[in-house]
């Protein structure tokens, strides 16, 4: 990796880092999710600045080609991320269902009370 490539990759990672920070400050990402992404991006930045680290890590992993090692780790991270999002989505769906049900029951009670009230006011002299 020459100096130019290092610079471009680092700049890209820094841009992503700033974007995550921006999403966090705008409350579009919670602190837990923002921390996870920031840690991942710091890891990417370290690898971008010292590609020899990727070489060493891939050797430790079992003599993989560094590019394959990075792809593998990236894919594992993405799968974990997608699974965790699926779990969160499921939890939110459950909460939403309960809210909609609660709303349906309340709405029916309001309708009943309103019709009882209308009946009372028409009956009263």
């Amino acid at each position: 990796m020459n100096l130019h490539s290092k610079f471009v990759v680092s700049l890209f990672v820094v841009a992503l880092f700033l974007w995550v920070l921006r999403l966090f400050t705008r409350k579009q990402l919670n602190s837990g999710q923002a921390s996870l992404w920031l840690i991942t991006l710091v890891g990417c930045e370290v690898l971008a600045l010292s590609p020899s680290l990727a070489d060493s890590l891939s050797v430790i992993w079992g003599n993989l080609v560094p590019v394959s090692w990075i792809s593998f780790v990236g894919m594992v991270l993405l799968i974990c991320c997608l699974l965790s999002q699926s779990v969160q989505l499921n939890n939110l769906q459950e909460k939403l269902t309960q809210m909609v049900r609660h709303h349906a029951f309340l709405e029916q009670r309001v309708r009943k009370l309103e019709s009882a009230h209308t009946k009372d006011t028409t009956d009263s002299p």
Binding site: T97, V100, R101, H103, A104, F105, E107, Q108
Partner: peptide, 25 residues
């Protein structure tokens, strides 16, 4: 008629559960 209304479509299972919850309540 007596009815309850889901704000949006929740699916058959959730509707059945609404019926059971109403009956219990």
């Amino acid at each position: 008629v007596a009815y309850v209304h889901h704000l949006f479509n929740l699916g058959y299972s959730a509707t059945i559960q609404t019926g059971m919850q109403y009956a219990l309540d």
